[in-house]
């Protein structure tokens, strides 16, 4: 079943030198799966995530032939309608929790407020829900954390809190933009486990935006590789190391590896043809893993 369907998405910004196209005709479908979006900075991967939530600020312009959430168009909805979708049906986790949490509000109040904004209901019920969510993201002492302020918790804890907050209203889709790159490796595994379980248990669709190829290969079901605002290759995550596009191959090769020492790292030679060539895809209709 397709949760989100995007066709020919474009995001443009006017500049002095003419219009700059951050995203140039991106099309994909998202089911109840972990979809990785990989690319370097400036490839348009974050802008793709933001445009789905209507978070591209003017003068940025979003156009698409289709952008549907379960059959209903969400392209350029008025802010009032978008707010109902944001958080309730599609949530977003950003890279650094420090910038996403309100520093002068206790964590409990923020989760409760976020939840009631979308689901309404009594305060006591919302509070219970918040406690449940904090427990769900493996926070050992949720009562104490509820009273804490963002500066009193560590980065990993902050990111888990953000995830708890975003997941409290039970969204259908979670967009995670580099959710673990500000975290240490040991905490990273924990945060990934939490997201993994949530996708599995709740049948959520996850868009996982990252620059880390290895991580995406191991964590996701399917991967889109973006270059210069376009998808250059789509493949199953387990096949990433057999990627065919020279860009994907170049990225993989340029990573230093502990198990295979080499004197010099192969350097990516960028080709102009990558900007406009046809994307390589196993098959455009997506294979949604059944046993999730």
């Amino acid at each position: 079943m397709t949760l989100l369907s995007v066709r020919n998405l474009r995001v443009t910004f006017p500049t002095r030198q003419g219009t700059f196209e951050a995203v140039r005709g991106v099309s994909f479908d998202l089911g109840r799966e972990r979809l990785g979006v990989v690319g370097e900075s400036g490839s348009g991967k974050s802008m793709t995530g933001r445009s789905i939530l209507g978070l591209v600020r003017p003068p940025g312009l979003v156009t698409a032939d289709r952008m549907q959430l379960e059959g209903q168009s969400i392209l350029n909805l008025p802010e009032r309608k978008m707010r109902k979708i944001r958080g309730r049906r599609i949530s977003m986790v950003m890279q650094d929790p420090k910038f996403s949490l309100n520093p002068v509000m206790s964590i409990g109040d923020q989760i409760v407020e976020a939840y009631r904004l979308h689901a309404g209901g009594a305060r006591a019920a919302a509070r219970q829900k918040a406690l449940d969510m904090l427990a769900a993201v493996q926070i050992r002492d949720p009562e104490r954390v509820m009273q804490a302020y963002p500066h009193e918790v560590s980065g990993g804890m902050g990111q888990r809190i953000m995830i708890a907050m975003m997941l409290a209203p039970d969204p259908e889709i979670l967009i995670a933009d580099e959710p673990t790159s500000a975290l240490d490796v040991s905490v990273r595994t924990e945060v990934l486990n939490i997201m993994d379980r949530l996708v599995r248990d709740r049948g959520m669709g996850l868009i996982f935006i990252s620059h880390d190829l290895n991580l995406v290969a191991q964590f996701c079901d399917r991967v889109l590789i973006m270059y210069a605002g376009r998808i250059v290759e789509t493949l199953a995550a387990r096949d990433l190391h057999q990627a065919r596009h020279p860009y994907t191959r170049g990225l993989l090769n340029s990573l230093p590896r502990l198990d295979a020492p080499q004197d010099r790292l192969p350097v990516l030679q960028r080709q102009d043809s990558w900007r406009d060539g046809d994307p390589i895809a196993e098959s455009l209709e997506t294979e949604f893993p059944g046993g999730l």
């Binding site: 370097e40 990225l251 192969p266 990516l268």
Partner: peptide, 11 residues
């Protein structure tokens, strides 16, 4: 830095 740029700088 991005991984491709990282390779250049490390080299």
């Amino acid at each position: 830095l991005d991984v491709s740029v990282q390779a250049e700088i490390l080299n």
